[in-house]
């Protein structure tokens, strides 16, 4: 029973990791940009929630109503005003620029909010749980995070496969020049991709802030998890991302059950094993998204 419990808790955390990874996957899928500031945008969203909660006196979940649109807007402007200019040449350019952004965001947050650890308080959700049998209890918070992850991924799938915008995303990912021949403004498409990516990231960031403490420097470690999830699941597959998140979450939980200091290590080991055995990921999609 102890192990079932461990695996279930790990799987639920996997939902959060999947949310970390979807934005990264979307930006890479559409533009072949690896956003090294991705983890810092997660942390930035959590701090944005701190500000919104302070100003309006709302709880963290309600703050999403403002945090998500703001991050969406930041994503759009960031892509149109900066990242679009790094595309089309050397792949090092977007890497360097997003690395720079990562440094700027971390230091900006440090300047504004100090190095103190923060947490987004939501007592009723954090402690509530549903009992299943004698020894298994599922926390309402982890369950919520997992459900949100499934809903967000399903919504992105709908967007990609059933809307004109999604079709344009996929066409641009395949062949941006040819897409332009049929009227696709790729600068707009790229901006929408980053906007949606940061919108998803902001949901992940706020849920992350409710779940655990954060400070301005922890972004890069979240980026690492996001990378691992994307690669375990297979590049460009959103449901693969969810599976990747669950695998990473379970690996960490099982590792921690042996020794609490092993959780991150166990995650990395499983990631490396999968990279060795199945480098293309579990559900690979080679073309486009």
């Amino acid at each position: 029973m102890y192990w079932i419990n461990t695996v279930v808790q790990g799987a639920l955390v996997g939902g959060l990791y999947a949310l970390f990874a979807t934005g990264l996957s979307l930006m890479f899928g559409v533009m072949r940009i690896i956003n090294l500031a991705h983890g810092d945008f997660i942390v930035m969203s959590a701090y944005l929630a701190v500000v919104v909660m302070g100003l309006l006196g709302v709880d963290p979940l309600s703050s999403l109503a403002i945090v998500v649109p703001v991050m969406f807007g930041i994503g759009y402007v960031l892509q149109r005003g900066l990242l679009n200019f790094t595309l089309g040449g050397d792949i090092l350019r977007p890497l360097l620029v997003t690395f720079g952004l990562s440094v700027v965001i971390q230091n900006g947050l440090l300047e504004l909010f100090s190095a103190d650890s923060r947490r987004l308080q939501l007592p009723w959700l954090e402690t509530a749980s549903v009992r299943i049998g004698d020894q298994l209890a599922i926390g309402l918070m982890p369950a919520t995070v997992f459900v949100v992850a499934v809903v967000v991924i399903a919504a992105l799938e709908l967007l990609l496969y059933w809307t004109t915008l999604g079709r344009a995303f996929r066409a641009t990912a395949d062949d941006s020049d040819t897409a332009r021949l049929y009227g696709v403004n790729n600068r707009y498409i790229y901006a929408m991709a980053t906007a949606i990516a940061l919108g998803v990231v902001s949901i992940a960031g706020v849920l992350f802030g409710i779940r655990t403490i954060f400070d301005p420097t922890i972004g890069p470690a979240r980026l690492l998890y996001a990378f691992e999830v994307v690669i375990i699941g297979g590049l460009g597959s959103l449901w693969g991302t969810l599976i990747g998140g669950v695998i990473l979450g379970v690996a960490q939980a099982v590792g921690a059950a042996f020794d609490p200091s092993w959780d991150t290590l166990a995650g990395h080991v499983v990631f490396l094993l999968i990279l060795l055995v199945r480098p293309q990921g579990l559900i690979p999609k080679t073309v486009g998204l």
């Binding site: 079709r167 996929r170 066409a171 395949d174 040819t178 897409a179 049929y182 696709v184 999609k285 486009g288």
Partner: peptide, 13 residues
């Protein structure tokens, strides 16, 4: 567009 089916390719047009 390789990741689009025939109809979606036409719709892109």
């Amino acid at each position: 567009f390789p990741s689009l089916n025939v109809e979606d390719n036409l719709r892109m047009g």
